[in-house]
Write a protein that binds this DNA or RNA. Sequence first.
DNA 1: AAATTTATGTCAGCCATATTGACATATTTT
DNA 2: AAAATATGTCAATATGGCTGACATAAATTT
Lengths: 165, 165
Amino acid sequence: MADINLDRGLGEAEAVALVELLFFAYRDFVADPDHVLEGLGFGRAHHRVLHFVGRDPGMTVASLLDILKITKQSLARVLKELIDKRYVFQNEGEQDRRQRLLHLTPSGEALRQKLIAPQIARFKRAAEEIKTEKKHDLQSLLFHLIDPENQVIAEKWIQSSNSNE
Amino acid sequence: MADINLDRGLGEAEAVALVELLFFAYRDFVADPDHVLEGLGFGRAHHRVLHFVGRDPGMTVASLLDILKITKQSLARVLKELIDKRYVFQNEGEQDRRQRLLHLTPSGEALRQKLIAPQIARFKRAAEEIKTEKKHDLQSLLFHLIDPENQVIAEKWIQSSNSNE
DNA sequence: AAATTTATGTCAGCCATATTGACATATTTT
DNA sequence: AAAATATGTCAATATGGCTGACATAAATTT
């Protein structure tokens, strides 16, 4: 398990740095699956549906809406496309036949794995990096979640954040 | 400084949990400034411009595009609105008079601070939480970045992630 | 049995944020 | 003088959200 030592609390400058690092890290983090989705004519919304349905097969449309926190109408188009292209299928609820329980087809599950794989790899890579560097702070972890080619840019911002503010 | 212990590396299930936690955490993390921006008729794009210009006053349009990784045309509208509403102003570069160097007005800087404040507070709060809970792992930190009312939902997913996969 | 609520789907239209391609202007560099 | 650079702008398009309104089927309540 990844242990964090925050006994000294978080300083203002450090918090600012974390805010910025999270921006850079998250952007690259979602870029991985985005590239895969592009070729399929899908977007992030499709990814999220695939992910959560895959992690809880048989979930209802309502609970999916609850987790995604989007409206029914926003989900409708995305879900329709995933069903049309046979990544997701629905079946009637046994107890409640109004429900359309959501499941992934085998190709849906395969796509889900393909999408999350680079994100898992990114976390593992970052963990390895800070391990070898022996810089076991939260900033370093977020920093190594960033694409190497973007780390240079990010570094400049973070440095000034730690000193200036 | 926030230290992390990852000597045992990251397991598959743990990495999956982190991926999901990051999704939930980031969503709530950006929701804070979003609420402030709403009332001003601004969006996230405006926030990012305010933030980076505020952190590097006098930056060029080109370097802003570089950091945001959006196109000139995408930036154009956002920047125009911020300039029209007097949150940002430009001045001619001294060495290179083609450049329109970017700066925040006092109200721009005030807005920037107002937008980042809840994000800083969120990190500090999360740090305090894991400190008092004495659960110094990365998962816990991300978990506490999530809005308390959403932590319940997130918890279910993460638990099954740690056991099932 | 009838009325209401719930789970889902769908239509039409709107908005914010991004995209690409083309082109204009001023300024600097070659 | 020509080319490259920094910026701005126009038009058209795509995506992913949104709201409001309405429809259907099934479950629940009265």
